[in-house]
Every structure is written in structure tokens, then in C-alpha cells.
Design a protein around this nucleic acid. Structure first.
Lengths: 218, 218
DNA sequence: ATGGTTATTAAATAACCAGTCATTTATCAA
DNA sequence: TTGATAAATGACTGGTTATTTAATAACCAT
């Protein structure tokens, strides 16, 4: 083994990837925060998972808290205002809309990566009240308003019984919340994989039948 | 001011309360863990809230982790096996039982102190897998089995439609979970207090109507 | 009262980890 | 090829906090 051979092929220890880093760091952080919570998550864990070292994170974020907050604020608003728009435009019956909406969300809950975000918010609401409030105002309240509107329309048109629309809206999403918690907390200990699809199917069945006025076949 | 006056009334700095300490420490820990999470909770916070100093905790618990685990395991099994017994003995209809059971739990969720326990378990499931598993096996599975049994009985007797009992059982408790999360996470930011009672009322209404066979008035 | 026992405190220790910074290395334009 | 620039590293520091331990003070049997 000669010197020339060694110097001929210098090892590349790392590459510059200014563009990609922030996203990769946030992805890594999402996983680590979800697993350990904010306080127990080490910057080194996040860095390792993102394929960098601790110092690099501080080139893109000012602190651990900054990473966390950036994470919790991204890509929620867009999806939601989108759904609200669709709800406004929707031509069909309230029943059809509910079915479509719940199915879409159910799909995200089963296979999406970002399901862990709500869990993070719930877990850290005590340490980051501003974030809890942000989610409450920007995500929950808007989603509930949108759903309540649809329900109210259904009631007005005689499609549904006369019930408090905002409470019914919560009943619609309750099984979704349950599923989020199940998947992010208890699913690892399932002997046989849980059948989310069947749950949602049953949910829509029971819900629509429960909302239908007397003497109607839903 | 003389010496005799000072020594005549010596200040009592603390009292011995060997019996009461562990419980008080656990109560304090429940609050602090719920607020901050396991990692961010300081032993000094817990101690202060329990009216002792840090060192005292170590007389009764071997470590912070020990405090946490003791907390998460207490007073769950008893209440639950109790409910299971009542369910087994219950004479009335499945509908009556569901109504009673849900109302009872709803009451606990609205006013009980221990609602925060589920939140703690959810938040720390990543750091304490054994605890998550414990809750899953000892609390959730047992509760679900009990409820599924009642539902199945209702289906067998013709009281309910023929639906998958285990999924229906989850639908029954989903709004309870939602309420737990609401109260422990977002309720502080409510402008007007949330009407849990009305939500549960609507839930039972919609649920029973949704479960009833065709042509039945629930 | 008093002295032995032990619950409790308060100060000391040690480990851990967020954040910094001097140094190294990739990249690119000339 | 080379020198300038900036991305990335990794050793180091300071503060925080779980745990230990040496004192202190309440309690109780005598």
C-alpha cells in the first residue's frame, strides 16, 4: 500500500447541502420529538438522524425550541384552508361530504407521516402554551367551524335531525382522534394489526343512521 | 426582647408524617408531570408542591422514574375490575347500561383529578414502553372487553343492529377520549367553558339511534 | 426532662446536555 | 491549479438537576 494510492482517492467526509438541510433536520426532529418528547430529545439524536452533527443544526435554527416551534407550525394551515374551500364549494349532500371527508382524513391517519404532530402538541401543551393556542385557533377551531357548517346545512335541508351542530361535529372527529392516539401510542403492542378501515366504516354507518330523521333510510 | 422569650416558643420547622408522605408526593407528582412531562419536571418542583424538600422524596422512592411508575400504576385496576363486575351483574338492557356507564365516566372526565393520567401515559409512551404496555393490557383491553361484551349481548338480544362489537365499543368511548384531551390540553383557552354534558347527551342520542335496528324507536 | 432513634433538611457531588467556537473541509470562480 | 468563501465538524464550557450524604430536629420510651 503506497502513499499515492491513499492520496489518490481522498475520502469525502461530508457534502454541502444548504438547501436540503433544514427540511431533513425537521423530519428528523419530528421523529425524535414524537418518540421522546421535547425535553428528553437530545440535539445529538436529531442531528444523527438527519445525518449531520449538532453544530450544523445551529446554522439553520437558533435553538432547540426554535426547531420545535418551526416543526409544529409547518404545513397545517395550507391543508386546512384547502379543505374549507372544498367544503364551501361542495355541491352534493352533507352526507356525501361527511363520508368523503372522513375517508380522506382516515387515510392520512392510517398511512401519513405527520400523524405524530397532534401527539407532540398534546404532550407539550404544558411547556408551550403558545403552540397549544396556535393549534387551537388555527387548526381545531377552523376545522370545527367548517364541519359545523356542513352539519348545519344538513340540518337545514332536512337531511339530519335537529341537533347541536358543533357537538355533532365533535362526534364526527372523535373516532379520528382515538385512531391517532392508538396508532401513535398503543399500536406497537398490537398482536394483529388494528383494522382502522373497518372502524371508520362502522363509524360512518352508525353516525349517519344516528343523524337521520325518523323514518328515513340512510 | 429577652432570650427566655425566644427559647420559650421554639419554631417548629417541620413535622414527621411518615404515613402521609408517599401519597402527598404522588399527588404532587401527578400535577407536575401532567404540566411539564416526565423529563421537564424537576424533583424540586414535586417536592415543593408536596411540602417537603428534594431529599425526602428519596426516602420513599428510589428515583424519579420510580415516582413516575408508581404513579402510573396506582388506582386503575381496582376501579376497572369494579366496573367489569357491575357490567356482569347488570340486569337491565344494554342501552340502559351504556347510558349509565358513559354518564359515569363523563362525570369523572369533567370533574375528576386523575383525568391527567391518560395524558401522561400518551405523552411518555415513547420513553416508558413498559408503562404503555401495562395500560394497554390492564386498562384498555379490559375496558374494551367489558364494553364489547355488553354490545354483543345487545346485538344478540336484538336490541342493536348486527355490527362488529369491538369497533362499536371504540365508537362508544371515542368522545370520552376527545373530552379528556380537550380538558387537559385546550380547555384553558376556551372563551366560554365547554359543555361536556351536552356533548355526551348528544353522543348517547346519536349512538343509540345509530345502533337501533330498523323501525325501532330508541 | 433526656437520650436514642429516625424523619427531614440542606449542602455537596456528579452526570448530562444545550449552545459556542476555533478548526477542518468541500465547493467554485478565476 | 489555487485561493477565497462558507458549510460542517467536534471538542469544550457553563448551567442545570438527579442523586448522595452529612448534619439537624422532631418524636417517643423511659
Amino acid at each position: 500500500m503506497s502513499y499515492t494510492e491513499q492520496t489518490a482517492k481522498p475520502v469525502k467526509h461530508w457534502t454541502r447541502r444548504k438547501q436540503a438541510r433544514p427540511g431533513e433536520i425537521l423530519d428528523a426532529a419530528l421523529t425524535v420529538f414524537a418518540e421522546k418528547g421535547f425535553a428528553a430529545a437530545r440535539m445529538e439524536d436529531i442531528a444523527a438522524r438527519a445525518g449531520v452533527t449538532k453544530g450544523t443544526i445551529y446554522l439553520y435554527f437558533s435553538s432547540k425550541e426554535d426547531v420545535f416551534k418551526s416543526l409544529a407550525r409547518v404545513s397545517v394551515g395550507a391543508t386546512l384552508t384547502d379543505a374549507a374551500l372544498q367544503a364551501g364549494r361542495f355541491e352534493g349532500s352533507a352526507r356525501e361530504f361527511l363520508t368523503m371527508f372522513l375517508s380522506a382524513v382516515a387515510e392520512m391517519i392510517q398511512h401519513g407521516e405527520r400523524v405524530i404532530l397532534p401527539k407532540i402538541i398534546i404532550a407539550e401543551s404544558g411547556n408551550f402554551p403558545e403552540l397549544a393556542r396556535f393549534w387551537r385557533d388555527e387548526v381545531i377551531d377552523k376545522a370545527m367551524a367548517m364541519l359545523s357548517g356542513v352539519i348545519a346545512k344538513g340540518i337545514a335541508s332536512g337531511e339530519f335531525r335537529n341537533l347541536p351542530a358543533d357537538h355533532v361535529a365533535r362526534l364526527c372527529i372523535a373516532p379520528l382522534i382515538l385512531s391517532i392516539i392508538w396508532r401513535t401510542t398503543f399500536a406497537p403492542y398490537d398482536k394483529t394489526p388494528f383494522d382502522y378501515r373497518k372502524l371508520f366504516e362502522t363509524h360512518i354507518d352508525v353516525l349517519l343512521k344516528g343523524l337521520a330523521p325518523e323514518g328515513t333510510a340512510p
